[in-house]
Nucleic acid binder design. Structure first.
Lengths: 192, 192
DNA sequence: CTCAAACTGTATCGATTGATACATTATTAT
DNA sequence: ATAATAATGTATCAATCGATACAGTTTGAG
């Protein structure tokens, strides 16, 4: 293998692309915006991502999952009190200067903005994986007697997804952090 | 006043524009899409809406409120059981072939997609008006002893908004209508 | 009958979009 | 050294965006 060395860092460039997509969404994030943020030229951009913006977005969403939800899902496998862990996870949507409260949920945004394409499907799949992990952790706690849910088991995933994706929009309407957190707290009471 | 007569119907044209914006959102709805759907030429378009797409969208959102939420809010003032009325309103998000389940909530979509501009602000305002009406009807029922809510009064609006805006995304993840409706039913139980 | 007012159809504007072309520079294997 | 390979920088492509120009058509007031 011969050839000139990369002048940019691949990981740093992809992380920069994540933030651009996260903030602007797939459509609004222009190739020029992305290149600028990634510190990369046009040629290098299309050399590294032959599929262009589409390929970059797909890899960006994969990396996003690895960076943010994945560590939490791993943690969730070990905790005794999954409701408290989920509460803290949901609280990030209420942190005034955090990326989640500012940019929203990467997957919900994608589901919302994308056409009926592969991205929408992938974003749904990511959220379902998260909901599945929530379900498993809660079921373990229930079986262990740690929690005593009043909500039927078959509604757990949809209820939790709806709370999460709702916050993604509600945070733009209700700016009072204490009200948002109280709503999260109240909604999670059904898990005991 | 002299002059040629309009060849198109203004109300029908605006209604057509609503559906285009509803389905595609402000950004993706191109001026050509709109003209085509409205059955109108470029000249007439910019003659009728000197502010272009922006002005058309503003009037479209106003008309949308008049067409859809307003009649329900009027009904809500008269019903004895507001919880049941709200349930039916939320159910429209689960109707497989309805515009709401297909296109989502006009206002939530706008809040989601718009930049920090006048549209976002107007969409938030519309949702707040709806939440206020929900609140008033529920408070009347509580004072009349018809319902016995377990949720603190100060969380009513945010809780109901979050349920509604959540459905706007959750409907794309959970396709089973019975699960969606059961989640709505369970969530509304807190109002007694 | 005339003429200004109002509406319409088509052609096109400059800006921006995602994506390529192509020459240049840097690196390594032989 | 030289050829092959890889990365870069700039210029530009066709398509589409919102918006406008401008000539043509229909109408009613005088």
């Amino acid at each position: 293998m011969a050839g000139r060395q990369k002048i940019y860092n691949e990981d740093a460039a992809l992380n920069a692309a994540i933030d651009v997509f996260w903030q602007q969404g797939y459509e609004k994030a222009s190739s020029r915006d992305l290149q600028k943020a990634m510190g990369i030229g046009f040629s290098s951009f299309y050399l590294a991502y032959k599929g262009g913006k589409q390929e970059l977005f797909a890899k960006s969403m994969q990396r996003f999952f690895t960076l943010y939800p994945q560590p939490f899902l791993n943690l969730l496998k070990t905790v005794d009190n999954p409701v408290e862990a989920i509460r803290q996870y949901y609280y990030v949507m209420t942190e005034p200067n955090g990326k989640f409260s500012q940019f929203g949920c990467y997957f919900s945004n994608t589901i919302f903005q994308a056409d009926e394409n592969e991205f929408k499907e992938a974003a749904v799949k990511n959220l379902v994986v998260i909901a599945d992990a929530f379900y498993d952790a809660l079921l373990r706690a229930k079986n262990a007697g740690t929690i005593n849910p009043t909500i039927p088991t078959e509604l757990w995933k949809t209820y939790l997804l709806n709370l999460w994706t709702g916050l993604n929009t509600t945070k733009s309407i209700e700016k009072d952090q204490s009200i948002l957190r109280a709503t999260i707290d109240f909604s999670l009471k059904v898990f005991g």
